[in-house]
Design a protein around this nucleic acid. Structure first.
Lengths: 337, 337
DNA sequence: CTGAAAGCGCTTACAG
DNA sequence: CTGAAAGCGCTTACAG
């Protein structure tokens, strides 16, 4: 319940001015003797600079706002952890906000962040209205979209190469000899969903195949499960499904098993993300890896240089990830070209 | 890139004093006419109070520090989301720190939080050294441990009723007719681990049974998997295992299946937490539910009343959760008393 | 109700 | 290198 100790108290104890104390702790020039006295006094008193006061003067809060929507998707906890570590390494901390993708809620959250004087915002799988984008621009607060593109918004984004990833996944199914290939797409309202779908459609077209079906899974387990039941209910059924993320793919796998079908003998499944669970024996999911570490690196680098004022234009960074071939899909047939 | 607009600019535009602007936005008394003029000017200029400046004066940052260690365990993303929502509802925001349980790292993180003038700290499954506990006490910053007890530390904690939960789980295995019951314990360094183990031992003793084995799973998938292989390798093997959390139980289930054994026919498994995955058909895990929502509620309530200065003594809150009987363990035999 | 003024705990020109 | 002083953007007694 003690009041916090201030630089003035340290100054008195050390027999120097308050400015001298400040200089020692802010890394400005000070003689060895002064620094010595100040540090000793500070240690005795348990002094630590008030970050808020410092932020007021410098205009640098050292805080980054992070908005995240889908924490139940295992991709995000890992991303959050890595983001947190990378930012801490740069001397920044994360003010976190969880939200749905509802526009009003996102607006509230972004306003809150701005009010807290964050130096930058990372929006993970969340879209920003153009009003919100303007607001951040006017406040001079850089925004980086993580795992979500928003072309034309003028916002920087870091994603995996979604079109290419969708293509690669689909190509792998084609190479395995499949012809009745369905796609359970990501949310149509998201660029990642549309891009992966585009990759699917391109690969099918290039192979002269017609999609068995394309349905919007909304990045939801429940919707994906219902879609799967639907796909299996017809007289004719797909022999392979490319699912737009692992989170949905797990639900798809379970539905297929519940229907008494075998994976991959009856149906091959390929997901997207390579979340930790994909490698678990229970799923053994073939999937396109999103290289979280490189995506996080790119996000932090982009944000930091924007904060430093180095760049004012938007960066659209796409990082390629490999297909991880596991047991949920048949391996490629015959010799590869 | 504009400079942020300040209360002084609003005051000039509205033709009132800066204090008047402040009063309108801090909810102090102001005439309807003044409020009107101020709000109009603020809206035109896009003014919002600087939370940092407000925090400096009031000494209330409206920020809660959250330390979390095991984000790969699905219990935590859910808890984080609920915590975030509950705190936002109280006008607070979360400064998040991920850490290992390493004492030095925790110390750094807590210091960082204190430097940022957080009003309270929630430590999820992380222990605080007594030096750190003292530090927070001296700074007058309340700490609540979430899902981790630390008796004798003087810190408040919110957990499930771990001894009772361990007892209930074990009793369920006994009721199902099992006699060779093993326990893969949580980390021995944690109170939750020790309590659940205590519940296991009590139930076994009450039933006149000797534990088949007790091993420390360290709350780690890998350690739990290795322990399982060990348990299965002997001439004699357990017919049931109580695993101290779901996160490990999933790995245990997979090892048992890999060994060609059937769950629950050969071995019954019961976990702890009732994470989302437990209900998935792939695991269908019988488990003791930790009532996340009620734990979060209790955590926020405790923290808020401590911040309000209402209580200075430590609260140790234990919340009971039911056993969720699913397919990974045999149902109780015969009639229940 | 309202304005002038002091002050939260710092950083940073400015002289010396 | 060092101290006195101004100021970051607010809140809050204090008079009027």
């Amino acid at each position: 319940m003690d009041r916090r100790v201030t630089s003035l108290q340290v100054a008195k104890r050390a027999g120097v001015s308050q400015s001298a104390v400040s200089r020692v702790f802010s890394g400005a020039s000070a003689s060895a003797a002064t620094a010595e006295k100040v540090r000793a006094a500070a240690a005795e008193l348990g002094y630590r600079p008030n970050v808020l006061a410092r932020a007021m003067i410098t205009g640098k809060s050292r805080v980054i706002g992070l908005v995240v929507a889908y924490l139940d998707n295992q991709f995000y906890p890992e991303a959050l952890q890595r983001l947190s570590n990378a930012l801490q390494a740069s001397g920044y901390h994360i003010l976190i906000f969880t939200t749905s993708n509802d526009a009003d809620e996102v607006e509230t959250v972004v306003q809150d962040m701005l009010d807290h004087q964050v130096e930058g915002i990372i929006a993970a799988s969340v879209s920003l209205s153009s009003a919100l984008t303007d607001l951040c621009a006017k406040a001079g607060i850089p925004v980086v979209l993580f795992n979500r593109g928003q072309p034309g918004s003028g916002l920087s984004s870091v994603t995996s190469a979604n079109v290419k990833g969708g293509y690669t996944a689909t190509q792998a199914l084609i190479d395995a000899g499949h012809t009745r290939i369905a796609h359970i797409a990501g949310w149509e309202g998201s660029m990642t969903g549309r891009d992966r779908r585009q990759g699917f459609e391109d690969a099918m077209a290039d192979a002269g195949l017609t999609p068995f079906a394309i349905v919007d899974g909304m990045y939801s387990r429940d919707v994906a499960a219902a879609s799967t039941r639907q796909l299996l209910s017809g007289a004719n059924r797909p022999d392979a499904i490319f699912v737009a993320n692992d989170h949905m793919a797990f639900a798809v796998i379970e539905e297929i098993r519940a229907a008494g079908l075998n994976i991959p003998d009856d149906i091959s499944i390929i997901g997207y993300d390579d979340t930790p669970l994909a490698a678990w024996p229970s799923f053994d999911l073939t999937t396109v890896r999103q290289p979280v570490n490189r995506m996080v690196e790119a996000t932090v680098t982009t944000l930091m240089s924007a904060i430093a004022g180095a760049e004012t234009y938007a960066h659209t960074i796409e990082i390629e990830g490999p297909l991880i071939q596991r047991g949920s899909s048949k391996p490629p047939k015959g010799p590869r070209p």
